[in-house]
């Protein structure tokens, strides 16, 4: 329509309203896409075979990305309708298995008895709205360098189970927002061996309340694992020097004198490289203290 054109025919407006669409009010600003909500893993895998298809977990990262028009998938395949991917259980060997589409709030509630440190981690992610939408599979697949779950997964030496294979946490994360997942591959569950003691200590980034630095310490019969999130430009990582020191003596003092090289740390508005490196030491000590 050009300058001075007449307004639309009122009958068109009426028919639009009758049609149930929302001609008035703010419209969705995302690019158009198709939406599928399969009820089985097999159907999800099939749907994800389409060109530019994108899996949707809880959408806590993906939906804002779409609203900013930074992604244009052809089809969103929601994983939230797949019953076999939701829930928490303890297997016969004592391992805790969490379905890939399980929201954080469910983990916080249902893993509290079997793996309290992991349940506490889940209970500290975001706010209640985030915890009731966001899923462990989505968080682990996204591998945000400041997300909490990657620290819990790597710190626990968990196994990521997909529709095609099982991957050890040590082999899964490949740097900021990068994992070994192939196109269309779905995290169906994550399997956590339960340590003797563990703690996640998170220092909040003041704005986002993601981890400015988060440290997950887990003590197993065969050794201690220390995983750090929020700090490194390479994403979640294991602090092996701290693990070695704690394997000798599992006390905060064992870390005295140990420090992490600031060179690969993240520097931004909220903290310098040196500050993040310092916080890694502080949070590791606090995690050990809390695990005693």
């Amino acid at each position: 329509m050009r300058l001075g054109a007449l307004p639309p025919d009122p009958r068109d407006i009426y028919s639009q309203m009758k049609g149930g669409s929302a001609p008035f009010g703010k419209e969705d600003e995302m690019y158009s896409f198709d939406f599928e909500k399969p009820s089985s893993i097999a159907d999800a895998v099939a749907a994800l075979g389409a060109e530019d298809a994108q899996a949707l977990g809880g959408g806590q990262t993906l939906i804002p990305t779409l609203k900013q028009r930074l992604a244009a998938p052809s089809v969103l395949v929601s994983l939230s309708g797949i019953a076999e991917m939701r829930g928490v259980c303890v297997e016969d060997d004592g391992a805790l298995v969490i379905g890939g589409a399980t929201p954080h709030a469910i983990v916080a509630a249902e893993a509290a008895g079997s793996y309290p440190a992991l349940a506490a981690l889940a209970g500290q992610i975001g706010d209640p709205a985030v915890r009731n939408r966001g899923t462990i599979g989505g968080s682990v697949a996204n591998n945000d360098p400041a997300a909490c779950y990657p620290a819990g997964v790597l710190g626990s030496g968990a196994t990521i189970v997909t529709n095609t294979r099982q991957v050890a946490a040590d082999d899964f994360f490949e740097g900021m927002f990068a994992t070994v997942l192939e196109e269309g591959e779905i995290i169906t569950s994550v399997r956590f061996p339960v340590p003797q003691a563990a703690s996640y200590q998170k220092f909040l980034q003041p704005a986002s309340r993601f981890a400015l630095v988060g440290v997950y310490v887990a003590r197993f019969a065969d050794g201690v694992r220390v995983a750090v999130t929020g700090a490194s430009e390479d994403g979640v990582f294991r602090w092996t020097e701290a693990e070695a020191a704690l394997n000798k003596e599992f006390r905060p003092d064992a870390l005295t004198g140990l420090s992490i090289n600031p060179a690969n740390m993240i520097a931004d508005l909220h903290g310098s490289k040196a500050y993040r490196a310092h916080l890694v030491s502080v949070m590791t000590k606090r995690a050990v203290m809390a695990s005693l």
Partner: peptide
């Protein structure tokens, strides 16, 4: 006093352009 900071980089890009970085 404790949280809010609207920051630009030297090219005039707004570094704290959302609640992810602007702390209310």
């Amino acid at each position: 006093a404790l949280l809010e900071n609207c920051a630009y980089d030297e090219n005039g890009q707004l570094l704290s352009a959302s609640f992810m970085d602007y702390a209310m």
